[in-house]
Design a binder for these strands. Structure first.
Lengths: 134, 134
DNA sequence: CTTGATTTGTACGTATGTATT
DNA sequence: AAATACATACGTACAAATCAA
């Protein structure tokens, strides 16, 4: 329940509510979130608060937004192993906005950058990569 | 230069301009970005467009915002090696909002989660971790 | 195929709160 | 105390993408 006496921002409160629904399986992966309008009406909030709450979840990689379509709970992608050789290094970072579009990544998804011992660099989709040694 | 005839959103255009200034060293790490107000006036934009542009850079991990202080270009943190054993795995993901606060991470920073062969799990600050094999 | 309803995206303005300088 | 800077939150309008009738 949103509490206007609470010191926490309204959008944080709403984000917490929705995150909890995702965590408990009340909103399953692939499920559609209530539209912005119904969230506004259902919680008596303005549009900015609702959008900011959903944005928090998007940044966490919990939901995916597409224009014209209802926002959905992100489905867990399968992880593909990335093998790290003895002279390789891996770092994680956020892609730049142009890079993100080029790679076809949703907002809120980091990349895994592997710098090979031979000087090569590979960039992987963060949500699907698992680094293994050897 | 912001072009209102351009098909790209105004905030994307402004984000591109600022990103370029950071890339070329016109804005060095640690440097202060122009305030929202001066960006509004300097580019003839409203506040939402300016804030959204800066938010794009924040999501990329390029700038850090602190309430009451001017927004600054993020300084490159030194990378600390994380050694991955033969039975360990590492994945990258965005932290949840509560987790992010607990770890003291700025917005726009992923975490590196290492699942040890013995069942233990370590979570590292993404911007400072380098995974090495062996 | 077209229309209309739904949903999210972009962008404006305004007011007030809070932290820092 | 005052000025500066970002944060929260409201409202509004129109655009663009999607989908179902």
């Amino acid at each position: 329940m949103i509490d206007r006496q609470d010191h926490r921002p309204l959008y944080v409160q709403l984000a917490d509510i929705l995150r909890e629904q995702i965590r408990t399986g009340q909103l399953l992966p692939g499920a559609v979130l209530p539209s912005e309008l119904s969230l506004q009406q259902g919680h008596d909030l303005g549009r900015p608060a609702v959008r900011q709450a959903i944005e928090v979840l998007e940044r966490e990689g919990l939901v995916v937004k597409e224009r014209g379509r209802p926002t959905r709970v992100r489905e867990e992608a399968e992880r593909e192993p990335i093998v790290l050789g003895p002279n390789d290094e891996a770092i994680t970072r956020m892609p730049s906005d142009p890079e993100r579009r080029r790679l076809g990544l949703p907002l809120g998804e980091p990349v895994l950058e592997v710098r090979r011992g031979d000087g090569g660099v590979d960039v992987y989709r963060g949500s699907t990569a698992v680094v293994r040694s050897r």
